[in-house]
């Protein structure tokens, strides 16, 4: 149960995008299409998993004074490895993600999890934490991209990154009713803002209901 809690906390309670508001640059830039969002999500998750596990494995021998430079070297190497592999095996996806692929190095989520979790916990727990945070990141970027692509183009398509062939292309509504703004950079800010506002409103309503229930459950002092 405790292990599942680590994954769920990473996905929901500590969701990097909607709760911690970390790594928003890549979320905004790579969420214009569903295909690129999935690609970026998987790339960030792989980097998170490998860096968390490696950092956790060497945590006991890493001198505290130089832990940050060591983390940076490991993260940079992992991102470069993922970038080279993507350029070789998923070239179109690598081209679509462009500069945001190497920029995973400076994604705050990865450094934050290395410092806060992986450097203090065992490799398996660090793996689970990275998996949870990574899945939370994928969930966020995919949700944003779905709304942006559907509202911006009226359709939803997914391209196989290995063969560059279209796996599906579903027309949701005629393209003349689409709002292209959502597929552009400005639309990313607007849509993320709307999603954050909605999530905050729901969270506040749930908290208020919980507080009300708790208040009702506390017995009031008797008059006599």
């Amino acid at each position: 149960m405790k292990k599942l809690r680590i994954v769920l906390d990473g996905m929901i309670k500590n969701n990097s995008t909607f709760v911690l508001l970390l790594g928003l640059c890549s979320i905004l830039a790579s969420s214009s299409t569903f295909s690129s969002a999935v690609g970026m999500g998987v790339a960030v998750t792989l980097v998170l998993i490998f860096t968390n596990v490696i950092i956790s494995l060497i945590r006991k021998i890493t001198p505290n004074d130089i832990r940050i430079p060591v983390f940076i070297v490991i993260i940079a190497a992992m991102v470069t490895i993922i970038q080279m592999l993507m350029k070789a095996f998923t070239p179109e996806l690598a081209l679509t993600l462009g500069v945001f692929l190497p920029l995973i190095v400076v994604n705050c989520i990865i450094m934050a999890r290395a410092e806060v979790f992986a450097s203090k916990n065992n490799p398996f727990d660090s793996f689970l934490d990275a998996l949870g945070i990574g899945l939370g990141y994928i969930l966020s970027i995919v949700a944003l991209s779905l709304l942006r692509e559907i509202l911006g183009t009226g359709a939803l398509r997914f391209v196989d990154p290995f063969t560059n062939s279209e796996l599906f292309n579903i027309t949701i509504f005629p393209s003349q009713y689409a709002i292209p703004l959502f597929a552009q950079n400005t639309g990313a800010f607007l849509m993320l803002g709307l999603m954050l506002a909605t999530i905050n409103a729901i969270t506040a309503a749930v908290s208020a209901r919980k507080a009300k229930k708790q208040a009702a459950a506390i017995p009031t002092k008797g008059g006599n």
Binding site: I61, T62, P63, I66, V70
Partner: peptide
């Protein structure tokens, strides 16, 4: 400290 950091860089370079 430099020895440790150097070793990490060396291993990362080999992997790359």
């Amino acid at each position: 400290l430099p020895l440790f950091l150097g070793s990490v860089c060396l291993i990362a370079s080999a992997a790359l």
